[in-house]
Nucleic acid binder design. Structure first.
Lengths: 180, 180
DNA sequence: TTGAGCATGTAAGTCGTTACATGATTTC
DNA sequence: GAAATCATGTAACGACTTACATGCTCAA
């Protein structure tokens, strides 16, 4: 499916970037729904360049240190736009190790089960608070044709997702504590 | 991490199964949070057998057709139990192509964006209805030390997750339609 | 001068998908 | 007799992770 290809092209639509900057982006804002390590990004950029979808200029910092600043080409933009407009089948529900564990939780006693749930809950609450903090920067919905609109809706989605997981965990804790 | 290993061991804790049956399970109930194809399962079972975590007996249907029915060993159960009790770090948020698309939706005009959202919404509603139907079999919460308890909580989690995604999509549609 | 961050790359290995490959049994 | 389902396996490829490998720049 070459998803990484489109993730990179999409970022380059905004403005030219180096591989290093793309990697940072993939480990901060985008990390809510996409990520990649530099070891995947550099080869992909090389490939995109060979395919004529991006080009680059070399920038020098100090005396020697080189950085390749990549720009999307006309052809690259066309391909990205085609992808962006394409209807897609809903993706398979993602694998979730914690849910797998809960699926098998009949093998656990009450204390162990609740311990696992509380531990997971705590981590998700922490995550949620980070997201909420980041959300504070938006005093209103950004213009819908701006880049910030995209940032805004996925951040909102990430918050809702976290809240939902916490609600589920709370239900699970409740079910585990009740006596039947 | 060998997650597939533990998914298989967990299933075999319930009762002995053939590779074919495991594959079916991974494409029906478990599909809400785990899945694997037979091409991954057969080699894994072979490996687990070599490691002494499972054993098998050969069953014959008709005249010739052989099936290997796998049973978890004492050692296999011990390893599974150790894994099940282990606290785990919250997993990275899963990759989500539709969210990636929405992140870049500033490049789309209103009609195109809403079209994508409506299309996705429809698929998620359909999925939700299937899940709700499956949920009807539970008139009450199953005993918490039974296998059905695990089935129940993950199904409940899948329903909540679907509802949440739909709520997010609806918000996105709302934001896209408003005028600023 | 030392450490954090900038910057790029490759290699080995694991995980997962799709396709290839074969054949038996049951049900209509 | 045909089709669906049972049953098992391998091969090739692509996606992703972890580790290896190197060297520069800037600020404290």
């Amino acid at each position: 499916m070459r998803s990484l290809k489109y993730a990179i092209l999409g970022l380059l639509c905004r403005h030219p970037m180096t591989g290093y900057e793309i990697a940072k982006e993939f480990n901060y804002e985008l990390a809510e729904f996409w990520y990649a390590n530099h070891s995947q990004i550099y080869p992909e950029l090389k490939k995109l360049n060979e395919e004529g979808l991006v080009s680059y200029d070399i920038e020098i910092s100090g005396e020697i240190l080189e950085a390749k600043r990549y720009t999307i080409t006309e052809e690259g933009y066309k391909e990205f736009d085609k992808w962006l407009n394409k209807d897609e089948k809903m993706q398979k529900t993602p694998k979730d190790i914690f849910r797998l564990r809960m699926y098998f939780s009949g093998n656990l006693d009450m204390e162990a089960r609740i311990h696992l749930l509380e531990n997971q809950r705590q981590q998700h609450v922490k995550r949620l608070n980070t997201l909420k903090k980041r959300f504070e920067q938006y005093s209103e919905v950004p213009p819908r044709n701006s880049d910030r609109f995209g940032d805004f809706v996925v951040l909102r989605g990430a918050i809702m997702r976290q809240q939902n997981i916490i609600a589920w965990i709370d239900e699970c804790i409740g079910f585990s504590k009740e006596d039947y």
